[in-house]
């Protein structure tokens, strides 16, 4: 464990908690892409299948359970509890255009042709594009509540910190996970445009992000 990975996991946890609390306390999921949240629940499900088979540390197990519970709870809030506030007309990204290529690639490019490893690879590739329905929804509505932009900021920051973690691990322990690194770079690049808007608009105190 190093400081970049720890900060990255904390940033990821903060993002997930911000989103969950935003929906739970405002009793509304307006402006939130349910599709992205379903994809994230799928990412955690296919990545953490080893939850019961391989024990790494208390921290690792606890964080996996927390991420799984909060992601499914968020999907539940969006599609069941507060479904009347779910803006399905704006959440129109065709997720099959993500799932099919990601599934195909995970069969082609992986470390080991076993179910667990292919599902892990699928989760890595899927995570790099899972935010696209949310970013697409924001460009379609042309705006996002500031709390939603804080969620996206911490979510984007988490994988950027993981990139630093992989540089650190490469130089200190020779660790290099090519599939995770390449996907992490792609994932972080998708946030660059948002990061620019976040810094230039939201941090200037605007009540919400309105796209030009």
């Amino acid at each position: 464990m190093n400081v970049f990975r720890l900060l990255g996991d904390v940033s990821h946890l903060v993002a997930i908690i911000i989103l969950f609390l935003k929906i739970f306390r405002s009793k509304s999921c307006a402006g939130i892409s349910g599709k992205s949240q379903v994809l994230f629940a799928l990412v955690f499900t296919t990545r953490y299948l080893d939850l019961f088979t391989s024990f790494i540390s208390i921290y690792n197990t606890v964080m996996k359970v927390v991420f799984l519970v909060l992601s499914y709870a968020t999907v539940y809030l969006i599609y069941l509890r507060f479904r009347s506030s779910y803006d399905s007309e704006s959440d129109t990204f065709r997720v099959e255009f993500l799932l099919v290529p990601v599934a195909g690639l995970s069969f082609l490019e992986n470390y080991d042709f076993t179910p667990i490893e292919i599902l892990w690879t699928f989760s890595i590739y899927l995570e790099s594009v899972a935010i696209l329905p949310q970013l697409f929804m924001i460009t379609k509505t042309g705006e996002a509540e500031s709390i939603t932009t804080h969620y996206l900021f911490f979510l984007g920051l988490y994988r950027a910190l993981y990139l630093a973690n992989w540089v650190w691990r490469y130089h200190t322990e020779g660790f290099f996970d090519q599939i995770a690194v390449v996907s992490g770079v792609v994932q972080t690049i998708f946030y660059c445009d948002f990061f620019y808007l976040y810094v230039t608009k939201v941090l200037k105190g605007n009540s919400k992000l309105t796209l030009p």
Binding site: D9, N60, M63, Y111, Y162, N165, F176
Partner: peptide, 10 residues
């Protein structure tokens, strides 16, 4: 397949 690094990250 490249060597499979232990998936010890979240």
């Amino acid at each position: 397949a490249d060597e499979s690094p232990a998936h010890d990250e979240l």
